[in-house]
């Protein structure tokens, strides 16, 4: 009887990194392999984007309200209540909006993709697709990753707008400011260096969410427990990636725009 071989933890970790890189390369090659699944891509955009709209909207609205209520006492004590729209807009557009919305999407979308593909693996649907000569990567992975890459930035922009509107309503609980003055203050306090880097990083957030969800689902082991693990692991890993990408994006933005 052969002796049981134990693979050290670091080696498994390196193997996993290697597999992720290989999976990403295969995903990338399949984008240009021809026969793009447009109908499945549109369906995924609907599932991922439209069906996440309510959650993103409510969360952003509450974030806008809460931020104004939290900021107001401090700014009023400095006699800077008029700075509330500017403070909210800059913090929301640059950082809080994209990151919170991406985290919400990681929880909803990455887990859903991980669980769906994990369950397809457990029920041999991925194997069935593969042995039939079809390309599961093109049908399932390319469409989902591209759909998250497109929809997370769109959700982020919509969430930003709803969050700023929530801030306007919260501001009117104590102070009185009309919508056109509020909008003017918000728009005048923002320029492309606030909006553009934030938008670009949401594209990478979307890519990370879709990629992690698909990778975890595709590489789940064959058992019902693994479906839950794939979903859970997808959320944790995608959330971690969002913070890592955010940290890198802040550094790049600081170097380029805020010298």
């Amino acid at each position: 009887m052969a002796e049981e071989i134990t693979i050290p933890g670091w080696k498994k970790w390196l193997e996993d990194i290697g597999e992720q890189v290989s999976f990403f390369i295969r995903f990338f090659k399949n984008i240009f392999a021809g026969g793009f699944e447009w109908s499945e891509f549109v369906r995924q955009c609907y599932e991922i984007g439209y069906r996440s709209m309510t959650l993103v909207g409510i969360t952003s609205f509450i974030m806008g309200v809460v931020l104004i209520l939290q900021l107001r006492p401090t700014l009023v004590s400095f006699g800077a209540a008029s700075m509330l729209p500017k403070t909210l807009s800059v913090s929301f557009i640059r950082e809080i909006g994209p990151v919170i919305i991406a985290i919400i999407c990681a929880g909803k979308i990455a887990s859903s993709i991980g669980a769906e593909l994990g369950s397809m693996k457990v029920t041999e649907q991925l194997d069935a697709m593969d042995v039939s000569g079809a390309n599961p990567l093109q049908y399932l992975v390319v469409t989902r990753i591209l759909a998250t890459t497109v929809m997370v930035p769109i959700l982020s922009v919509i969430g930003d707008a709803i969050g700023l509107f929530g801030g306007f309503l919260a501001l009117n609980l104590r102070d009185h400011i009309n919508i056109s003055l509020y909008a003017t203050k918000v728009i005048s306090s923002l320029d492309y260096t606030d909006f553009l880097p934030a938008f670009i990083k949401t594209i990478f957030f979307g890519l990370a969410i879709g990629f992690v969800g698909c990778y975890k689902g595709f590489h789940s082991s064959k058992g019902t427990e693994s479906v839950g693990l794939a979903a859970n692991s997808a959320v944790v890993t995608a959330s971690l990636w969002i913070f890592v990408i955010d940290a890198i994006a802040v550094q790049i933005t600081s170097i380029l725009f805020y010298k």
């Binding site: 397809m120 029920t123 041999e124 649907q125 194997d127 069935a128 697709m129 042995v131 039939s132 000569g133």
Partner: peptide, 19 residues
């Protein structure tokens, strides 16, 4: 392998229908 698989049908235990 893909070309060969087109000539081979595989019926899984569960049927493996795309649900």
């Amino acid at each position: 392998l893909k070309e060969l698989r087109i000539k081979i049908g595989f019926l899984f235990q569960s049927g493996a229908l795309y649900d």
